[in-house]
Nucleic acid binder design. Sequence first.
DNA 1: CTGAAAGCGCTAACAA
DNA 2: TTGTTAGCGCTTTCAG
Lengths: 378, 378
Amino acid sequence: MADTPAPARSAGPGASRPAASARSGGPEAAAPRAGGQRRHASRPTMKDVAARAGVGLKTVSRVVNEEAGVSTDTERRVQEAITALGFRRNDSARVLRKGSTASVGLILEDLADPFYAPLSRAVEEVARAHGALLINGSSAEDPARERELALALCARRVDGLVIVPASEDHRYLAPEIAAGIATVFVDRPPGHIKADMVLSESFDGARSGVAHLIAHGHRRIGFIGDQPRIHTARERLRGYRAAMAEAGLPVADSWVALGGTEPDRVRADAARMLEGQGGGEPVTAFFSGNNRVTVTLVRVLAAPERRGRAALVGFDDFELADLLSPPVTVVAQNPADLGRSAAQLLFRRLAGADDEPRTVCRPTRLIARGSGEIPPPR
Amino acid sequence: MADTPAPARSAGPGASRPAASARSGGPEAAAPRAGGQRRHASRPTMKDVAARAGVGLKTVSRVVNEEAGVSTDTERRVQEAITALGFRRNDSARVLRKGSTASVGLILEDLADPFYAPLSRAVEEVARAHGALLINGSSAEDPARERELALALCARRVDGLVIVPASEDHRYLAPEIAAGIATVFVDRPPGHIKADMVLSESFDGARSGVAHLIAHGHRRIGFIGDQPRIHTARERLRGYRAAMAEAGLPVADSWVALGGTEPDRVRADAARMLEGQGGGEPVTAFFSGNNRVTVTLVRVLAAPERRGRAALVGFDDFELADLLSPPVTVVAQNPADLGRSAAQLLFRRLAGADDEPRTVCRPTRLIARGSGEIPPPR
DNA sequence: CTGAAAGCGCTAACAA
DNA sequence: TTGTTAGCGCTTTCAG
């Protein structure tokens, strides 16, 4: 990350900025500054506005908060002072007094992952509908980072938290929840703590996806999934095993690979399974545990020498899946819906609901497009 | 399991907060609550911790902030009280006193857009490296919403702001910037205000992309871009016109369509251009203004009856572009790099730089993959 | 090494 | 309709 912004073509000439407005009556406050932006200029407060408008502090507060009971004339004078001074209410002070921040936090694995981005956006929309701001952070699948982020958000007194767990133990949140920070888990369940959660039916989804491959004649199916400490990875593997067992098919150890979603790892495991290394016979189909894995498998299977040689069903839908050749059959979740549901559960708590923690399960949907219907060779 | 505090009906609404002094010697930590999460439970303060540990307030502050000059024994006692009470520092109060929030805001069009998601993630990483939190909001390309978000963030006293403009006039930010909120614009320039900005070379990129099509024999090329009020849309159109003009090619009005990125709009415009409706002759190639448009065009051109009938070069790279048939030729930007550069510029200001506003331009890269090298019919 | 007192800028509760 | 007085929970200052 050492790359500094390039040698910049400078923008034009002297950006003279008008001097900051005067502070209560005094001389034109802030000293002139360079074209750049100055830091830490002092900001006018309600007190300054009050002085300038010749009214009391509380009157300014009333105007700023649009409370009733201010004469139109007074209001106008206050508004003028606000504009002249460039006043903006300091919400930190307000929060300190009122106790609520009108903001919620969201912690997930990676904001840039195409699965999580819509989830995040959905949470944002619900928050916005409730007049709250969203603060979000990426845990990068690191439990320590999740914890650090969550506690930082708690220190900022967000009203609530939506978390896609990276950690397996959320007892660290107990005091926070006890102190009133509503918390909802999404995509994966929390560890050692009870709270609302929204999950997709990973087990059922994976089972139906694998059953689909079996129905198309496959008997040797590889499973490539995410790290085993991730709940959804385990559940999907469980679904895979269930489908195989239900069909009376054995599962060779070498057909199952859980690990990071780095393309190299996935590629290596896939190659191994296709060659039949590690004990079992070569697989004729893959079930992949999430969209990152699927995308890499698509690349593996697109290589000329492997073209159409193995079937593929992936967990998670993804953009353009239908335009690949073959188009990719998937078990689709609805990430935006997950986010929306989680946020709704959160705001329900914030509205005062204090019944037992709920678990919402969202169904998955098998979308057959082609890659999952390729028959086994011979 | 130290789970959720035992089931028991909550203290109920209006559970009045005990006087601080009364709390100190009181019962162990938090009161029992219902299975659900209770709202607005009172949180212990430093004062409570001090009382419990039998030390002064400032000593607790020292421990919490890891300041030097506290005996190990005192520190231990304070830590115990902190744990027992479930204390967490209230950052609102801290901010009020210190003036800085260690947080920055990011406003962009849509967090879920595959172009902006990595940009956001990059800003987050830089912020994190500087110990700051990221608060972000989607403007949904609505100027009013951008403004509302930006001002809300200012009220929260973020240290700085990174903005992908939706608005064309940013004078509303002048008082904020004057008051010390560093601001950097990215992807598009600000309106009527001077500030740091990071842009991709839209004009050059589009020109080279269109020139590429011309070099492959095309003379009738359609341009489908984003709304004309978006700076990059205009710049890319300008690049298109420049390339055409440089090749001595005329541009029929019907070959240019700017508008929203909704698939229906794009599809309709594309169909019109392919049929030669609206005056000009049918186009043999498309240049698309951004990744949303490109994806729709890919769909249009993937229809059996149009298979390979028109060439395509798109602005912005996107995942799997290389696996489509034909693979899609693009003018690639680097969104993560844009975000990183913008954030670096921001933290440079926060570190005190107050020189002239800078403009950083990032180059684009033409990636030929196939769709842009299809020759015109005949 | 430790603590008491004075605010940070705002809102709540009361006067006037 | 308006203003005054207390804090919110923390950090700063300065004195023990």
